[in-house]
Amino acid sequence: MSFRITTLLFVSSVCLSSLALAFQNPTKPEAQFELAQQLALKPNPDSPSDVRYWLEQSAYHGYIPAQKQLAADYGRGLTGEINYSQAIYWFTSVALNDPTDSGFLLADFVQYHQAQVSKADLVESWYQLAALKNPQAEEAYNQFLEDRFNQLRAKQVSEIVDLDKKTIVQEEQEQVISTTQQKAEFLTIRYAAGTFCLAVLIGGGAFGYRWSSKRAHIHSASEVAKSQQLENQVNELQFANKQLKRQFEKVFKEFKQIKAQTGNQKLAVACAMFGYTPHSIPDSKTVKLRYRQLSKLYHPDSRGSEEEMKRLNLAFKTISQNVTKE
């Protein structure tokens, strides 16, 4: 009797475990959609994309409510990144499969996102949808993706050429900075030497003047002339010293301006390679994601070259030093 009870409890626990596992990994679109709703109410911070995943599973099985919610999710970025092309894809699927909709949601979405939705987004979505059942559309879709990649590649090559030109200008600016810095150092030495000479001359003049005063009764006329000459020399040296100081301050100011411009130029060049501006650098996570995407274009194993990859790494390092604090 005890053995039967134990066996029954064991079989029951196995069945319950199987049911729980089946609920967490449903295969029917209705159950997948329901699981997505439950996850949306209690999202998992360690895996925030679970909601979109189960919506996609249900939508790919043709469940209309899931397709509508998934399209809205892509359009508004509720549980992941915004993707207008995918939003149009699922709104189009709803238009084709839901007689009560007949394209209303698609038209409404395009109407209110005219500034964000491009013709390429529409073409990509419709080619992608048609390619599911039409071999000709699949071929056209592949050609579209290849053409778009070639356009992106041409744009990247053009930007690299521009970066090369900016690098040349940057090197010329650095040369100017080096020359200006040397000039500033030379003026600093001259300024220090002039100040020292002035101090020595004034000190020597004061001593000579006191000595000459004691002997004024012997050589009064001669000493007055020498004192006047010494005073004139001191005035000339003071005037030259002031001019030298103004020149030094002017050169130092120009040096700081050129140095600041060069630093901004380096950041601007790096941002241009990533598609940013110095005033719109996102957080480090987004920058790293863009770096991985660009690496697929620039890496030598992916139609790129070592030189292009080197530029990308340098740009990533420069941007990382100026990235937004998370």
Rank of each mutant, 00 (worst) to 15 (best):
G204M: 08
L297C: 00
F196G: 01
K253P: 00
H279T: 12
Q261W: 03
L289T: 00
E223N: 15
Q228H: 06
Y291T: 01
I258G: 09
S213R: 06
C197F: 13
R292K: 10
Q229S: 11
K256S: 14
M273G: 12
T262F: 05
M273H: 12
L237W: 02
A240H: 04
H217S: 03
G208S: 13
Q293A: 06
S220G: 06
N235W: 07
K259M: 09
V200T: 12
T286R: 06
V200N: 12
E236V: 15
Q233H: 08
L244A: 13
S227W: 03
E254Y: 04
E223G: 15
R246A: 11
L230Y: 02
G275S: 02
V200H: 09
L237Y: 05
E236T: 15
N232G: 10
V200C: 09
H299K: 03
C197T: 15
H219E: 14
Y276L: 03
I258A: 07
I218D: 01
N264S: 02
D283R: 02
F239T: 13
S220Q: 07
S280I: 00
E231A: 03
Q233C: 05
M273F: 01
R303P: 00
S220L: 08
Y291L: 02
C197K: 00
Q229D: 09
D301W: 04
H219D: 14
A199M: 15
F248L: 14
Q247D: 04
R303Y: 03
S284D: 07
D301K: 07
A240G: 15
K259L: 00
Q247T: 09
T262M: 11
F252Q: 13
